[in-house]
Design a protein around this nucleic acid. Sequence first.
DNA 1: TATGAATGAGAGTTCATTCAT
DNA 2: TATGAATGAACTCTCATTCAT
Lengths: 215, 215, 215, 215
Amino acid sequence: MDRVRNVTGKTKRLPRYVREQQMLDAAVQMFARRGYHAASMDEVAELAGVSKPMVYLYLGSKEELFLACIRREAGRLLDAFAGQVNQADAPDQQLWHALRAFFVLVAENRDSWRVLHQQAPAHGEPFAGEVAAMRTAIIAFAADLIDQNIRSRGVSEATEHDVSALAHALVGAGESLADWATEHPDEDPATTARRLMNFAWMGLDNLLHGSIWRP
Amino acid sequence: MDRVRNVTGKTKRLPRYVREQQMLDAAVQMFARRGYHAASMDEVAELAGVSKPMVYLYLGSKEELFLACIRREAGRLLDAFAGQVNQADAPDQQLWHALRAFFVLVAENRDSWRVLHQQAPAHGEPFAGEVAAMRTAIIAFAADLIDQNIRSRGVSEATEHDVSALAHALVGAGESLADWATEHPDEDPATTARRLMNFAWMGLDNLLHGSIWRP
Amino acid sequence: MDRVRNVTGKTKRLPRYVREQQMLDAAVQMFARRGYHAASMDEVAELAGVSKPMVYLYLGSKEELFLACIRREAGRLLDAFAGQVNQADAPDQQLWHALRAFFVLVAENRDSWRVLHQQAPAHGEPFAGEVAAMRTAIIAFAADLIDQNIRSRGVSEATEHDVSALAHALVGAGESLADWATEHPDEDPATTARRLMNFAWMGLDNLLHGSIWRP
Amino acid sequence: MDRVRNVTGKTKRLPRYVREQQMLDAAVQMFARRGYHAASMDEVAELAGVSKPMVYLYLGSKEELFLACIRREAGRLLDAFAGQVNQADAPDQQLWHALRAFFVLVAENRDSWRVLHQQAPAHGEPFAGEVAAMRTAIIAFAADLIDQNIRSRGVSEATEHDVSALAHALVGAGESLADWATEHPDEDPATTARRLMNFAWMGLDNLLHGSIWRP
DNA sequence: TATGAATGAGAGTTCATTCAT
DNA sequence: TATGAATGAACTCTCATTCAT
């Protein structure tokens, strides 16, 4: 009933791409708030202002719709995180820019973040895999920066395995802070990014200087 | 058909408590591997070697069953993490013991970890809340240790808010490493714990010494 | 499989209202013959020539379906009984017309009568209440006629309570005769109505003339 | 937990007949208040202070239990109604005694009345038939009295069919008044019986004197 | 293009009923 | 005698999905 209508009273015919984006927007919102299973195709269609068969016509099935959501949002996140980095910068500067972009994105797109972080991994393949791939890319990016840092100082005891572990820890810390920031809306994303830089990068620095914690 | 039978060929009658634990074991496994919705009560019952009505008789409903799983596993995790710590130890020693116990538990109970970390938060209330409460307790524990450390050195610029953020980052890093360790079965849990101590604790140390990262 | 199909062999698509009436028809029949609990939604749907989800989509739930049946049939009965009465007629004429319409309706809609008289009161609230309300209306109608009759003769010993009891007796006699007529299909409804008029109205007449039975 | 126990703390072993009556008491109560289907064997057993298998051992099945209830209560009602009548009395005296006994019984055993009047007929054979048989006996009794009355006056236009209809009307009026009396606990059963005698018997009298209502 | 009408398939849940002790 | 433990079988209800127009 709320669908956009033109002056003749007929339903407005929008180009396919626009309609698709509307549906994806609606789907992301529903999946984030209700969860994948509890979100019904009926509700998605209604929120998108379209009839159910349209959703099927454009997106195929509930699984494909969910996948399309995941892909779109994962792409956006990757773009934000890694896309705008200047490879000529120092590693810490690169990480800093990436993290800040990430926290900004999450703050502005909570539903998107919940779909990627909370929903997709819980519903098995192929959804979990899609997010896992994105996460792997991010971790690789972090690992690369850590590696650059290490090499630039000539320290080299750390294996690839060690670096990978550090990158995982760094990303996990970032994800957790993203959730935390969600509950503190007055926290500036840049501040959150600085917190993480201090927590993580400084710890790495220490290791590089040989001060190691032992039980 | 697969029910346990004794030599006389008759169905084994077990006391209620035993059967309940069997059902919870089966449920944790099914929920972890298939996901909450995809896991059917039929499958849970079959895996537990019991008929469906028994599951309902003892555990009430699918929701209550899931909650019971979450509560049991959350309790175990909390016990492992915070239960065996000696308050007389230095903060870093306390954290170290807790983390080691945590990584050991996760390594030995992957399904349990997946239920808590991957399934419960994805399915809304009351499940998410139950895990959130446990996580809050763990974060408080970590925050407390960080606080002790700060005070013992007389440094005091950090607000409670800052400490909370650090604790969230630390716990997030631990969760991420737990997942990572799951894919590296030959990694010793103690080693994983040491990685995290080095990544996190040393970073904190740095902060305490006043070396701060700035953009 | 038995659904109505047109010559092209395709499923007939009927407007919502028509389908709803078909479902109610089927439901009344099933509830009357099998009883509320023994009637399954599967059977109702099949008899209506529709799939089960349609019944749920249009009527909501088994309880709501039963209620809808009761309401429709109670409405029809009330209309038949009280709807066509001319208030200008003498009380006995009014009652006579009402009773005749009632016995005609019951003779032509046995299932409907059984749902109202036999099923609904046996299954507690809200079903019993719905029929009780209709019955109360009918009894009030009868009581009113009795009252008019009394007043028209200036006799006035009878309290409201007494009149109510008489009305209940009259209606109970009518219900019982309705059941009895059901087993005597060759009995003309008008005859049945006349029987009741003689049994009831004449008895009242007597009372009004002061001839009272005493133990 | 509330079962009767002797001093040794063991469950009291009561003779079979006593236990059976306890179970029937409990069953009548449950069937009357919840309805046949909604009453569960669990609840019946608990209310009777017995374990479920005992109910099955003594009464056979839910159907047989319900039948046993119906038979016991129908027997009591028949006894009350027709059992205490002195055949030497005049017909109106006989009817009066029977009705008074009936209204007394209903007033004191509401659950019993609801099982017979409300539940049994709603649940098909063999339950409905059992009550129908009892009702037939009562109607036959009434018809006989009416018949005696007619013959004693030498009036004989009335066929057996007519008399049967009158008896049905009389009994229906009685049933309806029984329900009505249930809602007016301060009404004396004898008064209710007198109401019915006046309503019914006097109406019959009229007919016998040739004053007939015509449309 | 767009949709109201319709359904296949399967889930959770609840009993009456019966073993095994 | 008496019962805690256990289940077969059904039933209500819900969706993702697809016709027919």
